[in-house]
Write a protein that binds this DNA or RNA. Structure first.
Lengths: 194, 194, 194, 194
DNA sequence: GATGAATGAGTCTTCATTCAT
DNA sequence: GATGAATGAAGACTCATTCAT
């Protein structure tokens, strides 16, 4: 087995276990078992338990940011970008429930280290949104009085809360598309200049 | 000192400590010290560490829900209610930073118990929003195609993410009112029927 | 309420509670509740938890020794004394189950203090038996090769194990008299058929 | 070092420590130190402190029962069996003073669990005695009016009290054989001179 | 004397991490 | 590299005892 494989196996096992129990209630031994690896082996690939969480964030979220950025690059219209952003965001959550749960729940933990760490990657993600807004304002499509810094948080927050609902509850009344359309509609009608 | 005082002293100390370290990194001994009380005394008022967290949620959030509901009762216009809701929510966060941090961060913990617990109180809070929407729709002020169940989450999520930003970052570029107006404007312009 | 009453109330409550849970699993608070007294009150009458146990031993066992000695004094024949001793011992256990359980179980605890303490009172009790044997030997009724020091332990042990069985099991197939007669018969006549 | 060794090392350390302080006054840390093992290691072999006690009972007493049964199987005459039983019992106590102390003192603890537990193994041991009696009665050697259920307790109790004396006191006036002969003589022949 | 709220020392147990094999 | 037995620091919680009222 190649090293990369084992690294990945551990990360995926950790995502599963963290999603199941939460970070603090997850045991290295359980992750090791889930990954079919000895406890000690984990320490050949990670410095400590925290490091696994950081890695999940770094690698998995990095991958998501990349994906979203690529999708955004395919579109020109800021309106369409916003709608598409909502769709992608919610679909990604849908497709990676366990990862989403870990990110939403665990990365809000109070550890100073994680909190600060989160901010870097997270800011990058949020700024995709504010870039769209700025573009839209520059093109005269969006109202000038919209503060991109506020908007990015509001928009992300709306999506995030929606997806938290999805992650935590098993049964949902409407699909990704409905939700994405509703939410982007709220915001678009709200910020379109007329 | 009256019993109520000591109970309260411990709760407030716990809010401070939980906000500082997070639930799992907070030690009973630290809470006790912060409350100027012996370790054992805490167990005269609470069954265990978890119980303190639950109590914070129950008492403090219950108080907030009450306050918001009262404010809402003073207004008639759903538009004004929504704007006011945003203002109150953000001001309360502003005024109770530590409490807000505990709620936002710790009550998203993965403990099944807490998660389920949270939902009850939380649902109550969210439903204040959906009630406003329904009222607005009934009065023909809000568009009928807006799904209250989606809206309540989107609106709350927007405010929540905004306030998380406030809680975590020390310096902010704009005040509560600016943020509240921006956010409610996004949504109002978005859902007003025309 | 007279002081003596409260002292006694606590002792009796303690016997009940110790019998129920064992010394180490009994809480002062439980004894206090059983005695309808405040926790602190117990410390007005006893130095500490141990002291209550010692007192139980001292007072209650002292009383028993007295009773048995008086009964022995009424009889002359060593054979009859032995039979009577067995009867009294077993009846006392029967009538004071909780006290018996405390003595049998708790006073065998390994606390050096209790162990040494026990020996004094206990030796006094055992010596009632060896006195009977010596008397019987002096009168030519008992065999001279019987070692009183061994006999007293053997005889007491037989009765004690029998009564332990009584204390621990609820249902018994035979009464005090049957058991007392059997046991004293073993020792007096042996079990060989002739 | 093989696993079995470590398990055994801990059990033997525990026997020593329990005998020294009693169960409730023994600390896991002390057992660990006595076994030259880390505190945590104990929990790799035992679930908790109680479990160690149970194991002592199970393994060590089980071994003793086996030994005694084997010895009994070598003899035919019930009289000889009874005498031999007394000898073996007392020698085993003599050879395993600490174990004997733990069994005698700690396994009489009031914990419901231990009490019930003890009964199973203990009943097995006692029944060796009643089997001998029944055999003797069937062969016409022992009196028919002897109740085996009473006898087994009386005989065991006599030996047990004798051995308690041995365990607790350091200096003794007579040896195992003397004591065993005396006690079995009491029961076989009685103490009446004829 | 009586109370019972407060104390804080004491200990079992967990589990991230190490390291000999 | 891989293993998993061993480590031991850390902390929640209990409860005998005290003491202000």
């Amino acid at each position: 087995m190649k090293i990369a494989d084992k690294h990945e196996k551990i990360v995926h096992a950790a995502i599963k276990v963290f999603a199941r129990n939460g970070f603090y209630n997850s045991k290295i031994a359980e992750i090791a078992k889930e990954a079919s690896v000895a406890d000690g082996t984990i320490y050949l690939y990670f410095n400590n338990k925290y490091d696994i969480l950081i890695t999940i964030f770094e690698e998995e979220i990095g991958r998501i940011i990349l994906k979203v950025k690529r999708e955004m690059a395919k579109l020109d219209d800021p309106k369409e970008k916003l709608i598409r952003f909502a769709q992608i965001h919610l679909s990604l959550v849908e497709e990676n429930k366990e990862l989403a749960e870990v990110i939403q729940v665990e990365l809000r933990q109070s550890s100073k280290f994680v909190k600060e760490y989160r901010n870097k990657k997270f800011a990058e993600y949020l700024n995709i949104i504010s870039q769209i807004v700025k573009q839209g304002q520059a093109e005269g499509i969006f109202r000038k009085d919209v503060m991109p810094g506020v908007f990015k948080r509001a928009f992300f927050g709306a999506l995030d809360e929606m997806s938290r609902f999805w992650v935590l509850s098993s049964k949902k009344k409407y699909g990704v598309n409905t939700a994405a359309q509703q939410i982007s509609a709220f915001f678009l009608n709200g910020i379109l200049s007329n």
